[in-house]
Structures are given as structure tokens and as C-alpha cells.
Design a protein around this nucleic acid. Structure first.
Lengths: 249, 249
DNA sequence: CGTTGGGTTGATCGACCTCAATAAAAGTGG
DNA sequence: CCACTTTTATTGAGGTCGATCAACCCAACG
């Protein structure tokens, strides 16, 4: 519901902390290699891909790329969380996706950003110049296949989210959201009843197509019903079973 | 809002009218070749692809494939319209996509249908066995690239639809829907103020996340305001400009 | 004709939004 | 470390848009 684009202090595209280019070597110790598109590559291919890669850092609320603006690079999300959002003429915002470590940003390889990307908390990206990445794709059919897989998976996720936005109640949306985040983090850090939300109520509301008040009320209701406890920066699930019931399937 | 799966007379996967396999030759005269993924192929490649293709026909409301069931084939939509939908445990339905001539069904190449596909009116598909199509992809990197492009485009469209479902009013949804359909048909048949809806109010409601009553009321309102005229099987736009204003951007 | 399926319209209801006040948390500067 | 501001979250009261429930129309069709 809030246009954050103006509210941000964007120094430059690349924060000072990441100006030094450091190539190649890190891939071997990359924490998301196995869960990213890079797992489709041979060691040799990794080397040639890493030759064009650069790590870049962003801080909370920093805009990584603006909808409609030229996209100079594509990247893997290494650490942190990135919100993908679109803003309507009258100012309303819809968060159309949440990227977590291992996710690829720029699946479409489009020359313009199709959505605004905003860092949530500290974010590290492994960035590749777009044209060079495109060129490398020609030489690595497995990489293209993996990219297509990821895109298809995203599409499927998007369709699932359409169902949520079109046909589900506020309670179901909230429950689904929490379970979905929990499941996604589980693949990265392992299962935990404690869920770091990272983002604030505005972001959640804009993702679920609700208002912050409804988000707050729904969470309070869950807490009152002992389904979860609201803790700093997140929630702790107290009754997993009940939350799944509330999610509507 | 209606579970149609049970309500249908599904003879078999392949209607009698299409049992005779007819290979290859039609590709030369295919009406959607240039707008389908096939336009990425050389004449020679077309021949090898057409060797595994088969045309199949479906009638109005016939289920082409059910969500969750094994997907034996992928296909190009040649004529007609296909609804892609998901159904909640509860019974509510969300239409997550509308396929028109030239669109590819089965972009994900997944072994199971991720949504239910339902024919709207008479439908002709150009069908390929899934495994064989997958194998052919290895030999045709351009085809894979084209497939990825289509998938990325679908994803972008899906995200736009999320904005509609999450943040737009009934009026805006309806206006957007009509303009979107008009634009998509324009690429196939050329621009026309007359829009064949093909589908009924239930389908529209389930696509827009509304009820049939709201769809009907909104259309009636548009007609009362002389924005459009409701005609058999569709609408005729009377005030294109005003409809665009109503769409909210 | 009666029946059936789709569409329209009206009356009422309720889930969520809006507006507003308050509370809690997080910065900021002395 | 403590006032002070600013941001973020919660809670309440009231309003609204679209859902629900229900009646009715109309065309197709046996």
C-alpha cells in the first residue's frame, strides 16, 4: 500500500562494500551452489561462469532494481531475502514473489526489470552481466534446461498464489503464507517451528493482498488461539497441525 | 465456484473424430506456426517434430487433462480456447490461465498436470508425446530457448494477474479482462471492437476471483454506461477510451 | 409445453477496508 | 542512560464492496 521507491536512500547500484571484484574462487565454497541453477554445471563450467560473476551486497530496503528500468544483470541470491513487487498507478503495491537464498533473479533474461526488487535485511547477490550470461547459455544447454525448470517452478508457484489471492480468506492466506515460508526455509536451514519473517507487516499485507490491519489482527487471533506466538522478528508455531487446518487444505 | 470435473461426459482421452493419425504434412499449412514455439524451428526440424505430432479435437467443456493426473503429452493449441484451472478442497475454483491459438500447453514438461485443462468451444490441439518431445529438445536448443521464453512470458502474465487479483476492484478486473482478451485476439485475428467471450459467466468469475452475480452486474453497468453492448456470445466495445480508463491504468 | 441451464436483478449480510487512537519498538542526540 | 522523535504494530469503531441468498427471465430442447 506504500510506494517505497521514493523513501529510499539509494547510494548507487553497487554499495561501496562490494566494489572490489572477486572472481571464481568462491564458487567452490558457495553456500547455495547445490540449490541454485549452478548445480546443473560441471566443475569446468562453474569456472567459466564464475569468471563473469561478482558478489554484490545490499542493505535492508535497498532497491536492487526498479520495474521497467533496464536490467544490466541477472543473479543468484546467496544470502537474505528479496521482494519482487509491482506498483499500481494509484500507489497500491502487490508483492508478486519472495526470493530466498538459492533463487535466481532475472529468470526471464528480459532486458528490462518486470518488477521492482527490494532487499529485506542484508542481502548478498552473485551477479552476472546479462548479455554475457545469455551468451554462456548457448554453450551450456544444461544450464538453460535448469533455468527453464526454475522458471516453470516459479510459474507453478505463481498459479498457486493466484488461487490464494482469488479464492481464499484472510485466515487461510495468513496460514498458507506462514507454512509456505516455513517449508522454504526448511529446505535451506532445516525444519523449525520458529519462522523468521524478516519482512514487516506492510510487505506481508502486500504479498497476501490484504491490509496491515488485517494481517495484524489475523496474527493476533492466531496468538490468542495458541496456534503460534509472536516473537521479535517472527513467529513460533505452537500448533503445526492446527495451522495446517486453518490453511484450508 | 463449480466443480465441473464430474459434470462432464468424457468419452476417452481422444475423441473419435481424431483417432486417425495424420502426421507431418499439416505443419506447412499450420495456422499458428508463426505464433507458436514452432517458429523457432528450421524446415528440417519441423519435419522431425511433426513426425511425433498428432492432431486431437475436443468439444466444449471437455476436460483435456486433470490436475494431478499423469501428463502423457504436451501440445500446441491450434484452434479454440482452453481454460487452465485449479480447484480447492472446499470446491472453489480459480482459473489461472486462458490459452488461445498458438499457446503451448505443458510448458513445465512436468510428468503431472499442474492444473485442469478444459476446452471452451471446439478445440484442436497439436499433440506430442511428452517423453519424445523432451528427447527432441536435446537436439534443438533453439526450441528449448523458445520454450523458456514462452514460460517466462507466462510467468510475467501470471504476476500481472496477481496484481489484478490482489489489488483491483471488480470494475477494474472486468475492464482489464476485456482489454486483455481483445489484445490477445488482436494478435491472432486483428483488432476488433467486438470480443467473443467464448466462455460463460462462471468461467469469467473464476478467472477474476469474483462471483457470477458481480460479473453480470459489472457488465450490465458497463452496458448501462454505454461503454459496451452485450451481444450474443460476447460484447462489443462502444467506448474503448472509457474502458481503458476504467481498467485503472 | 415442462424442463433445464445460463443470465440478470434485488435485498441483505458480512469480511475486510478505512479511519483513528494508542502502544510498542527503534532510533537519535544530549 | 535517558528524553524525544520516528517508525512500526496493535486495537477499536464504523463503513463499503462484493458475497450470499433468492426470485425471476429467457432461450434451447426433448
Amino acid at each position: 500500500m506504500l510506494d517505497m521507491r521514493k523513501a529510499l536512500c539509494r547510494g548507487g547500484e553497487v554499495p561501496a562494500s562490494s566494489m572490489g571484484p572477486h572472481h571464481g574462487a568462491e564458487c567452490a565454497s558457495c553456500p547455495v551452489r547445490s540449490s541454485s541453477i549452478c548445480d546443473a554445471l560441471t566443475d569446468q563450467e562453474i569456472v567459466s561462469l564464475s569468471a563473469i560473476s561478482r558478489h554484490v551486497n545490499f542493505v535492508n530496503k535497498q532497491v536492487i532494481g526498479d520495474e521497467g528500468e533496464p536490467a544490466h544483470s541477472v543473479c543468484n541470491l546467496v544470502t537474505g531475502c528479496v521482494l519482487l513487487s509491482k506498483i499500481l498507478p494509484h500507489g497500491d503495491r502487490q508483492v508478486v514473489g519472495i526470493a530466498l537464498p538459492g533463487d535466481f533473479l532475472g529468470l526471464a533474461l528480459s532486458d528490462r526489470n518486470v518488477f521492482t526488487m527490494t532487499a529485506v535485511g542484508d542481502v548478498q547477490l552473485c551477479q552476472y552481466p546479462r548479455e554475457r550470461f545469455g551468451a554462456i547459455l548457448d554453450a551450456m544447454p544444461d544450464l538453460l534446461r535448469r533455468l527453464h525448470e526454475s522458471t516453470a517452478h516459479e510459474l507453478s508457484f505463481a498459479q498457486e498464489h493466484m488461487v490464494l489471492l482469488g479464492r481464499r480468506s484472510a485466515t487461510e492466506r495468513m496460514a498458507k503464507f506462514l507454512l509456505s515460508l516455513q517449508a522454504r526455509w526448511a529446505r535451506i536451514r532445516g525444519f523449525s517451528p520458529r519462522i523468521d519473517l524478516l519482512m514487516n507487516r506492510v510487505d506481508i499485507a502486500d504479498y497476501l493482498g490484504l491490509t496491515i490491519e488485517t494481517v495484524s489482527r489475523t496474527l493476533s487471533k492466531f496468538a490468542r488461539d495458541k496456534v503460534l506466538a509472536i516473537i521479535p522478528d517472527g513467529v513460533r508455531i505452537l500448533d503445526q497441525q492446527q495451522l495446517e487446518t486453518l490453511s484450508g487444505d
